[in-house]
C-alpha cells in the first residue's frame, strides 16, 4: 500500500511539473490566438467549448 501511495505521488508530481513548465513556456509568435473549430458538445468545462471564448479572450488579455 505504501509503495502504491509513493508511486502515485511521484506520478502526480511529474504531471504537476510538466503542467507548470508547459504553462510557463510561451507560445510561438503568431500562435497566441489559435482556436479549434470545435462546435461544442455537452462538456462545457472543456477549453475548446464555444462558451469558453470569453474566458479565453480574458486569459489572453492578461497574458
Amino acid at each position: 500500500m505504501i509503495k502504491a501511495i509513493i508511486y502515485f505521488i511521484i506520478l502526480a508530481v511529474i504531471y504537476g511539473v510538466l503542467y507548470y513548465f508547459n504553462h510557463k513556456t510561451p507560445k510561438p509568435e503568431g500562435c497566441e490566438n489559435l482556436r479549434s473549430s470545435c462546435e461544442g458538445c455537452n462538456i462545457t468545462s472543456c477549453m475548446a467549448h464555444p462558451n469558453n471564448d470569453r474566458l479565453f479572450k480574458e486569459e489572453n488579455k492578461n497574458a
Partner: peptide, 8 residues
C-alpha cells in the same frame, strides 16, 4: 503528462 510534455 505526455500530452503536456509534447505540447511544451
Amino acid at each position: 503528462a505526455f500530452v503536456q510534455f509534447v505540447e511544451m
